[in-house]
Design a protein around this nucleic acid. Structure first.
Length: 128
RNA sequence: CCUGUGCAUCGCUCCAUCGUCCCAGGUCUAUGGCCUGGGGAGGAAAGUCCGGGCAGCAUAGGGCACCAUGCUUCCUAACGGGAAGGAGCGCGUUCGGGAACGGACGUGCUACGGAAAGUGCCACAGAAAGGGAGACCGCCACAGGACCGCAAGGUCCGAGGCCUGAACUUGGCAAGGCCCGCCUUCGCCAAGGCUUCGGCGUGGCAAGGAUGAAAAGGUGAGGUAAGAGCUCACCAGUGCCCCGUGUGAGCGGGGCAGCUUGGUAAACCCCACGGGCUGAAAGACCAUGUAUACCGGGGUUCCGUCGCAAGGCGGAUAAGGACGGCCCGUCCGAUCCCGGAGGGUAGGUCGAUAGAGGCGGCGUGCGAGCGACGUCCCAGAUAGAUGAUGGAGGUCCUUCGCAAGAGGGACACAGGACCCGGCUUAUAGAUGCACAGGCUUU
RNA sequence: UGCGGGGUGGAGCAGAUGGUAGCUCGUCGGGCUCAUAACCCGAAGGCCGCAGGUUCGAGUCCUGCCCCCGCUA
């Protein structure tokens, strides 16, 4: 049985790396979400690293920002297996940045729908 | 019992599964995986409004500037915070009184040093808005005269007075004239108030009216031409002195004085007290690594000085720089080469979680607090850990139902980022205590 | 995290040292025109971000909040 985990080495860290993804990655917009991704070498055993961002501009309270990031993390944790397999098959590594740009908070089901559709479109675009 | 106010405490609970950060231990195929155990957001974690710890830089000293505070005593590491008290201003109850008002009690608010050190401002209205000012109406007096009226009295003119507009007088200037030191001018300037013309009735008063937020103590009597703290009595207020009382702010009582001196300092300002500057993006270390600040030596240049010169000595003087606001004052001194020693960015580790710590009862103080004792270890992330799903319970709302109950929905404000003490702001609901009001019962 | 600037009619902005809140554009009504624009005449529209305080009087001064913009790794 596979375990649905999301540990530290799967987080995308570092100022320079995030800046690189931001400036040179390809983006996919889906409703309130925006996925910026790039196929690149990463210093980790994981097949992909992800960062989640919720700007203060859209959600003023830290409680709401934390909640949205937790929901996004939860969705990624439960659905990442399929995508990672396809990347492993191609023997590549990816860096993703998921940004929330909605005004209010969402529930888990809606977040799941949007993020999975977002990832599907990105994978399709990059030929996995 | 209900409602309100204030203070204090709490602020959903439990179970299962999956997931996550830290610590300890173990294990494997070791940038990681797995197992076991333990810990994992708040009363405001927030706003960043104050105060400290801590860190670095600066620091011979003095002055100015700047910032902040402002009744007293105390608490505190400190504070612009807190406690107790004083004074002032309200509100309520009650007592006295015809009322105005005063006393007592309770309760709330207060940036509450100085306006008699100086400066500024006080629009509009109003006569006048601050050298104790000013005269619109008003009140009173005034040589002499005219008019009205039987009279009481009333109305009008205005001598003396004031203004100095014109003439005038005196002086100066300018231009012109001649007999050359005097004269003249529709000329100009300054002064004068003797003369003429012209203009204003003149003087006293601050009681009353009217304006305004505010009009220069209030009431009564004397006094006066009319009046006025002009004088007196009482009251209010100011300053000084004495006595009692309190640690003190003050409070109570008595005496003297000038007899009255607006408001504004959240206007400048004065006084007292305090403040060195910068903040964890502070700062320390590691690996990589070498700009140039620094230190030592040498050369060249500049300035001063000694010397006939070669050259020597010094960086006091000059330009400039540092003492991160300015001044005095103190200190440094341009550039090139060689050697030594070593910075910043990005990454990592520390800083960084045992503390002005929590809890418990005891002692002490009116209280904020303080003291000793016992006991506990309680988040340390760094693109930033607490979430998801299911179930049970609790509270509230709502629909159905006669009821028992059933269905549905909601559970506030809000998430650490170096740490503490406060303040301020947000907050559904629950509990306790105190006070006030209403209803019911005895 | 530390700091700076701002909030005034529908929009963009003035408002020195407290004393009746203004300007331009826009809106509405009328005129001109065959009609529209331009032009001319007139009008409405503000508790000056919110709440307290100082003052006789606050857009302005003081205090506490709310919101917006910018700088800072």
């Amino acid at each position: 049985m596979t375990r649905y985990t999301f540990r530290k080495h799967e987080h995308l860290c570092g100022r320079l790396r995030i800046q690189e993804v931001f400036s040179t990655g390809k983006a996919v917009n889906e409703a309130p979400f925006r996925l910026v991704g790039k196929v690149m070498e990463l210093p980790t055993v994981a097949r992909a690293q992800v960062a989640f961002s919720v700007p203060r501009r859209y959600l003023r309270h830290a409680v709401d920002r934390n909640r949205m990031k937790r929901l996004m993390r939860e969705v990624y944790r439960l659905h990442k297996a399929g995508y990672l397999e396809r990347i492993a098959a191609a023997d590549r590594q990816c860096a993703w940045l998921i940004i929330y740009q909605g005004r209010g908070t969402m529930d888990l089901a809606e977040t799941q729908l949007k993020i999975t559709r977002c990832l599907d479109r990105w994978m399709e675009k990059h030929g996995f």
